[in-house]
Design a protein around this nucleic acid. Structure first.
Lengths: 344, 344
DNA sequence: CTGAAAGCGCTTACAG
DNA sequence: CTGAAAGCGCTTACAG
């Protein structure tokens, strides 16, 4: 007995095909459900002929394993959650692609979720996802350490661009990129610069600032922090007033979005970039090479970061402890938004 | 009895807290599991005092409903799947945000998935997701009609920027934007233009081309199709040769990415935009206002599209048939990449 | 208002 | 190699 032949158009409700179950397969193959389960999950563990037959029937019936039902007894969903502080932030594209690549090759499923730049949303999303994934990746988390540790109590969790003591975290070393950037600025003749910081909740912004501070000190370059600011074009635009007030000749922005925003505001105010003001961003997003001038920036190998993070998480799931610890580095990319300061 | 006090660091495997179940709550609250289930799901249907007590215990135990277990008997997961032809395509940002907004307000959970611009990946992802979501949103699907109808047999499905007979689809009317664009080009004096088409599998590219063709004919403007092409910067760059060969004075690109790519290639070849060549894109992505010149484009109200699509899907889930059919329109945005053709 | 019981679709010791 | 049975965590008629 199937759907009545007069079923309405496919869009109409109420005529959905109930998916085939292992019981359906068992019945038409003349075996028990347990055997079906084995045939489908542990190839080789049962009679080759029966296995063949069962697989054929499954195929014929369009059988798909019900992931929820499968997860109940095993506690395994085959799914990995990736929570990004903002999915629409271009920064994370390469990371998402990197993650997708290894996820696919490992036969898991990726569930993407967006924290929408809000700790509350992030916390809630993480909690909701926690029950239906095998492990969680938190990218650029805005949560505090305590909350993250709490989440990690329930499922394996790997951090990206964030470090919490006791938890695995992938964060590319900011030092190489920052050193090159400051060398570059110094050689150009800049003596006084500013850092446009990101949100107060951004751990990464803190790391970048601390590193910058250290290295500026070491080179006898004056540096001030301007912020915290919102990590968007708008945030960058808003900072122009304070940048000018600070009388610096160059600024390093927390990210390219802010760098571009600052560039736009500068143009609008007839401040020439790079002649009057040099600007350096972070991340090398799509867009930072579209502006005029193009943005000099410090990039992370985010695709590698995504790959590495997923591999680390999968190792964690498999309780495989010898996950080789790769170290990743930032890299300086010189483009057009930096030049010698105008003599005054 | 809880974890031994000497549990290793949180990162260590094997010391995860087993989540509390309704049985745990039932035991400590001194009621039956059924009552706990009711207290938590049908507020008001049981004794107010017991309900209070149960909720308190649940809170105290840090209870979270197991979504897989809940979904088994009900067939409802509270989750909606959103498959995007490419999550990292800036076009979809506003759409994702719009979708997120109404999802949250309706108490559902959004699961984002990426088709990575591949019909195979899309098909597989859809199939995998199908079993664990209540409904599916396909954005810019690259699947053929038959396959989409097949998927729709199992779960409610809503299309975005795609139309398949019998299925609900949200696609903003391309006409208003295209009319304005052609009027604009005509008034500037262009008599011969080209359309840079997207992938052959892109339904939307076909619609844009057909509409353009109609309207160009109506205005006695010559128009040729160049393509199909890949809908990326690179695709746009590659098209310059054919654009020049076609001796047109203006081109409308399938999307802004291609428009920007074409602009870059033109710059590199010393073709002045807009003097030698006018360029119009589609979508108004982040980036199209970053270039020099900025890109004149035709935008869709993608945030409204996202909202509408989710609302439509939820109406479908609730078998609520009076989902008001909003119509959405494209809009022409004049920027700097269009000008009168140079006299020859 | 509340409980006992059956069932959702699967997996996996346990026997044979 | 294969089957019967119990169980994963929840929901929901069905009784009371």
């Amino acid at each position: 007995m199937t759907d009545p032949p007069d079923a309405r158009s496919p869009g109409a409700s109420g005529n959905r095909k109930p998916p085939a179950t292992i019981y359906d397969i068992a019945r038409t193959a003349g075996v028990s459900p347990s055997t079906v389960s084995r045939a489908l999950n542990k190839p080789g563990r049962i009679n080759a002929r029966t296995e063949r037959r069962i697989r054929d029937v499954a195929e014929e019936l369009g059988y798909r394993r019900n992931p929820m039902a499968g997860a109940l007894p095993t506690g395994r969903t085959g799914t990995i959650g990736l929570i990004v502080s903002d999915v629409t932030n271009p920064v994370y594209f390469d990371l998402i692609h990197g993650a997708e690549r290894v996820i696919a090759s490992e036969g898991h499923t990726l569930v993407l979720a967006d924290a929408q730049e809000s700790p509350d949303t992030e916390s809630e999303t993480a909690e909701r996802l926690l029950l239906s994934v095998d492990g969680l990746l938190l990218v650029g988390s805005r949560l505090d350490d305590a909350r993250i540790l709490e989440l990690a109590e329930h499922k394996p969790l790997v951090l990206v661009n964030r470090s919490v003591p006791g938890l695995p975290g992938i964060v590319p070393d900011p030092l190489p990129g920052i050193r090159k950037a400051l060398d570059h600025l110094a050689s150009l003749g800049h003596r006084s610069i500013a850092f446009l910081s990101g949100p107060a909740t951004s751990w990464m912004s803190g790391v970048r600032w601390e590193t910058l501070l250290d290295e500026a000190l070491r080179r006898d370059i004056g540096i001030v922090e301007i912020g915290p600011g919102i990590p968007t074009l708008e945030g960058g635009r808003q900072s122009l007033r304070r940048v000018r007030a600070a009388r610096v000749t160059a600024v390093v922005a927390y990210n390219d979005l802010m760098a571009i925003g600052l560039l736009q505001a500068a143009k609008a105010a007839d401040v020439d970039v790079p002649e009057d003001l040099s600007i350096i961003g972070f991340d090398d997003i799509f867009g930072s090479s579209l502006t005029t001038p193009t943005i000099t920036t410090i990039r992370s190998p985010l695709d590698r970061v995504g790959e590495t993070a997923i591999r680390r998480l999968i190792a964690e799931l498999d309780e495989d402890d010898h996950s080789a610890d790769v170290t990743l580095f930032t890299e300086f990319i010189e483009r057009e938004s930096t030049a010698p300061p105008r003599a005054r």
